[in-house]
């Protein structure tokens, strides 16, 4: 069964972009526009990996990550941070990778494949 990736970003254009990259490489996808929406969808979607933007209007990335890390069920989901913020955000220490926008799609796919397999 294909692995599922959840794309969290408040810019619908960027969501669409990452979703397309993932789908073109054989992954299933789901998406959310902010941390709150992402959290409510975790239960039904059960993603294998999450790409997370940091600066979002409703609930910003690190806050979502802290909630995630508290839950036994979700805390092992690997996270790839994709952000325009200049510095790596310290509160997301356990992210498998940080990609700065604009990112290289090949690099993203390589990391995803390394983390959860093809």
């Amino acid at each position: 069964m294909a692995k599922k990736i959840m794309v969290v970003d408040d810019d619908p254009i960027i969501v669409k972009y990452i979703v397309r990259i993932a789908q073109d490489n054989g992954y299933e996808t789901c998406s959310a526009n902010d941390g709150i929406e992402a959290y409510t969808r975790l239960q039904e979607e059960k993603p294998d990996l999450i790409t997370l933007d940091l600066q979002m209007t409703e609930e910003w990335g690190p806050q979502f990550y802290r909630r995630l890390a508290k839950e036994e069920e979700y805390k092992h989901i690997p996270i790839i941070v994709i952000s325009g913020l200049a510095s790596r955000h310290l509160s997301i220490r356990k992210a498998v990778a940080y990609l700065a926008k604009p990112f290289d799609p090949v690099e993203l796919i390589t990391i995803i494949q390394k983390t959860i397999g093809k």
Partner: peptide, 14 residues
């Protein structure tokens, strides 16, 4: 600009 460039990458990708 970073966001815009990423979006532009998305458009180019499509």
């Amino acid at each position: 600009i970073k966001g815009l460039l990423t979006g532009l990458d998305g458009g180019m990708y499509s």
